Simulated scan of single mutants.
Amino acid sequence: MSKIPVTAVFDIGKTNKKFFLFDENLKEVFNTYTRLDAIPDEDGFPSEPVLPLREWMLKTFKEALSSPDFDIKNSTSPDMELLLSRLTMQENQSRHCMTT
């Protein structure tokens, strides 16, 4: 069976974070959601937990890229490869900074 060509969309709302795959007819063929509770910033105001959000986005997108069922359009373009390599590099640097 051949992979379904899809377009990936992240919908990052204030409360819910969503990821969708749409086929060429714009029919939703996959979705996943997560909810990340706000954390206080340096002034005590609720703020987005950026590192957990980034980790969820990376994990979700990498899983979608490796799916046997879906082929994300343009996922092998030089721009996409550059984006993934930069995100992975930042992820590794963040882990290093957080542990030292």
Score class of each variant (00 low, 15 high):
10 F>A: 04
10 F>R: 08
12 I>G: 02
13 G>K: 10
13 G>V: 12
14 K>P: 00
15 T>S: 13
17 K>R: 13
17 K>T: 05
18 K>S: 09
19 F>M: 09
19 F>D: 01
19 F>G: 03
21 L>G: 07
22 F>G: 00
22 F>K: 05
22 F>Y: 11
22 F>I: 12
23 D>W: 04
24 E>L: 14
24 E>P: 02
25 N>F: 05
25 N>R: 11
27 K>P: 01
27 K>E: 14
27 K>L: 09
30 F>Y: 15
31 N>S: 15
31 N>L: 12
32 T>P: 05
33 Y>H: 13
33 Y>G: 06
34 T>P: 03
35 R>N: 06
35 R>L: 07
37 D>W: 14
37 D>R: 15
38 A>N: 09
38 A>M: 04
38 A>R: 09
38 A>T: 11
39 I>P: 01
39 I>Q: 10
40 P>I: 13
40 P>D: 05
40 P>W: 00
41 D>A: 06
41 D>S: 07
42 E>K: 14
42 E>G: 02
42 E>A: 12
42 E>D: 12
43 D>C: 00
43 D>R: 01
45 F>A: 13
47 S>D: 12
48 E>V: 04
49 P>C: 11
52 P>S: 10
53 L>I: 10
55 E>R: 08
56 W>K: 07
57 M>C: 07
57 M>R: 11
57 M>D: 00
58 L>R: 11
58 L>Q: 10
59 K>W: 12
59 K>V: 01
59 K>M: 05
60 T>F: 02
60 T>K: 06
60 T>Y: 05
60 T>D: 08
62 K>V: 14
62 K>R: 13
63 E>F: 08
63 E>G: 10
65 L>R: 02
67 S>Y: 15
68 P>W: 10
69 D>Y: 15
69 D>C: 05
69 D>A: 10
69 D>I: 04
70 F>L: 04
72 I>H: 06
73 K>R: 15
73 K>M: 13
74 N>E: 11
74 N>A: 13
74 N>I: 03
75 S>W: 09
75 S>G: 08
76 T>A: 06
77 S>W: 02
78 P>Y: 15
79 D>Y: 15
79 D>R: 14
80 M>V: 12
80 M>F: 15
80 M>S: 08
80 M>Q: 03
81 E>L: 15
81 E>I: 14
81 E>K: 15
81 E>A: 13
82 L>C: 12
83 L>A: 12
84 L>Y: 03
